[in-house]
Amino acid sequence: MTPLRVVSGSANPALAAAVAERLDADALGVVLERFPDGEIRPIVGHVSGQDVYVVQPTAPPVNDNFVELLLLLDACRRSRAARVTAVVPYLGYSRQDRRTVSGQALGLRVVVEAIAGAGAERLVVIDPHTPALESVSPIPVETLTAVPLLAERVSPVRGGDTVIVAPDAGAATLAERYAAITGHSVALVRKYRENESSVSAIALLGDVRHRPAVIVDDMICTGATIEAAVGMLLHHAADIVVAASHGPLAGAAHLHRLDVRRVLVTDTVAHAAVAPPFEVCSVAPLLAEAIARMHEDLPLHDLFAPARMGPRSA
């Protein structure tokens, strides 16, 4: 069988190392040279004839990490790797899946076409912001989910009749996925976004009175949506926990001041240090299992559809 090789970019080497350890493989480090003007030149080791998985989330600084990903993919291709897969747990530009006004670019399509053009034959992501990802990608996309991992950590929340809360309409489907696993009911916060950093909650649909609440979203960036949802729930819920697949946390320091017991994110984005209420759940086991199956050309479908944990609440 073709040897398996994990290549680690600089965006999240700890995650790449954890994945490689679970695969009983070495994480091939990269020499990252920098020119005085900021230009980078990554150099990979021996990957000729190997099945290569480049682990490089495009987390902040998004553009720097994205360019590094492209150069790593090209370097592996030019080093005659047998097959190159881009493992991008957090995919930047996923929010730019459609144009809302004239003159905008379709950023998501540009990004995935660039990844394919740089040499990736497959793309692996975790809980992308848009379900339209594969429809605009010229290469196959394996979409994994961190929802079962997070659902296990938040359910039950101090017992009681927990309710899963979508902080906006866009997270409603995600909330239903949590509910299908945990057996809890769902509530929805309606919001109004004034700009990228200012959000107002205008209505709460569902019964959360005196019940533990779990606010779920695919990502926390500025934290404005979460803050608005927490503000809406404070006078109703008995306890509040937040769970999100990705935590770029750009400007979200104010979440430390919110009256929530826990904020769970994964390590799709590297976190140098976290303090309560933040907690980090690792997706290394999920990625390692997916890579092991892809290496052996086995199906991944049962990684996408977790079994229910219990009966659905009334």
Rank of each mutant, 00 (worst) to 15 (best):
residue 245 S to E: 01
residue 285 P to F: 13
residue 53 Y to V: 08
residue 48 S to E: 14
residue 129 H to Q: 01
residue 308 R to T: 15
residue 118 A to I: 09
residue 223 G to S: 11
residue 230 V to H: 04
residue 219 M to T: 10
residue 214 V to T: 04
residue 156 P to E: 05
residue 309 M to R: 11
residue 181 I to N: 02
residue 268 T to S: 02
residue 172 A to C: 08
residue 166 A to D: 02
residue 185 S to L: 07
residue 241 V to R: 13
residue 278 F to A: 02
residue 216 V to G: 00
residue 35 F to P: 03
residue 304 F to R: 13
residue 282 S to Q: 05
residue 90 Y to R: 01
residue 29 G to Y: 09
residue 77 R to I: 13
residue 307 A to V: 13
residue 95 R to K: 06
residue 104 Q to T: 09
residue 173 T to H: 13
residue 196 E to S: 12
residue 219 M to H: 08
residue 172 A to M: 11
residue 9 G to K: 04
residue 66 F to R: 09
residue 155 S to N: 14
residue 33 E to T: 13
residue 293 R to V: 10
residue 117 G to C: 13
residue 279 E to F: 04
residue 80 R to D: 10
residue 90 Y to V: 00
residue 9 G to D: 03
residue 174 L to S: 05
residue 126 I to N: 01
residue 45 G to Y: 07
residue 78 R to C: 05
residue 149 L to H: 05
residue 38 G to L: 09
residue 255 L to C: 02
residue 69 L to Y: 08
residue 141 V to I: 08
residue 51 D to P: 04
residue 191 K to M: 10
residue 290 A to R: 07
residue 217 D to C: 05
residue 133 L to A: 06
residue 238 A to I: 08
residue 57 P to A: 01
residue 199 V to P: 01
residue 201 A to L: 05
residue 184 H to T: 14
residue 196 E to H: 14
residue 37 D to L: 06
residue 301 H to V: 15
